[in-house]
């Protein structure tokens, strides 16, 4: 067993666990997009960022790929972490505003503006479909091509692949290529309709006193504290 500090509390983890796995084991909720049980870790969406180390020298790492080590100090809900996650959500919304998963995340984390020009694509390059096809379906029909701003996921030569069995697993697992719910402001890049609902908490509570902790917190306290 490896002992380390998670959000100020001493925790124990099995050898080989990642920070994300340990956090899940202790009931801490860390948002993820490119992580999926049964698939190899990718570390591409940067939503599961956590802060490790002591403040002056602390750094952000992806918890899904970071293996636990003895004496590690991890904080999962600092302002820095939230700012980084908001930024990532903002960037991803600007790429794929049509995704309900992303819109929900935006409302949950209080992303109320998108400062980038919407690209209206249906892919955030999380690589879930590529790993799903290769690892679970043994298809290897799709993959990353090109690089930089041209990077895309496609079949060889953009035609129907001989390896593809049309199983649909890539579409099943995709967080981006589905219709978002039709909120009141559905025509803008950012929906935020969920934010107009009454907040469930009016005061700021400590992390462990929050009674939405297990179910996934509403995020009100962090929003309130920030503004």
């Amino acid at each position: 067993m490896i002992e380390f500090i998670l959000n100020g509390l001493p925790v124990k983890a099995e050898e080989g666990w990642t920070v994300l796995e340990t956090a899940k084991f202790y009931g801490l909720e860390i948002p993820t997009l490119c992580h999926h049980e049964g698939l190899t870790e990718f570390g591409g969406c940067r939503l599961c960022l956590v802060e490790i180390g002591e403040p002056p020298k602390s750094k952000l790492v992806t918890s899904c790929t970071y293996p636990v080590e003895a004496g590690l100090v991890v904080r999962t809900d600092t302002n820095r972490v939230w700012a980084a996650r908001r930024m990532m959500i903002e960037l991803m919304i600007s790429v794929a505003p049509g995704s309900k998963v992303l819109q929900d995340l935006a409302s949950k984390f209080g992303v109320t503006r998108v400062r980038f020009t919407p690209r209206n694509e249906e892919c955030i390059l999380c690589g879930l479909c590529v790993r799903m096809c290769a690892e679970q379906m043994d298809g290897r029909a799709i993959g990353f091509q090109q690089r930089g701003h041209k990077r895309k996921i496609s079949t060889p030569f953009d035609i129907r692949s001989e390896e593809c069995r049309l199983c649909g697993a890539c579409m099943y697992i995709c967080p981006a290529c589905q219709l978002r719910c039709q909120g009141p402001n559905a025509e803008t890049a950012l929906c935020n309709a969920c934010l107009t609902m009454d907040p469930t908490c009016l005061e700021h509570y400590d992390e462990l006193q929050c009674w939405m902790y297990d179910a996934g917190r509403c995020g009100t306290c962090v929003r309130e504290k920030k503004s």
Binding site: A134, R140, I142, G143, F144, Q145, T155, P156, S161, E163
Partner: peptide, 8 residues
């Protein structure tokens, strides 16, 4: 090797 890896 899968063709897609070569193309990648």
């Amino acid at each position: 090797m899968p063709l897609i890896d070569i193309l990648g």
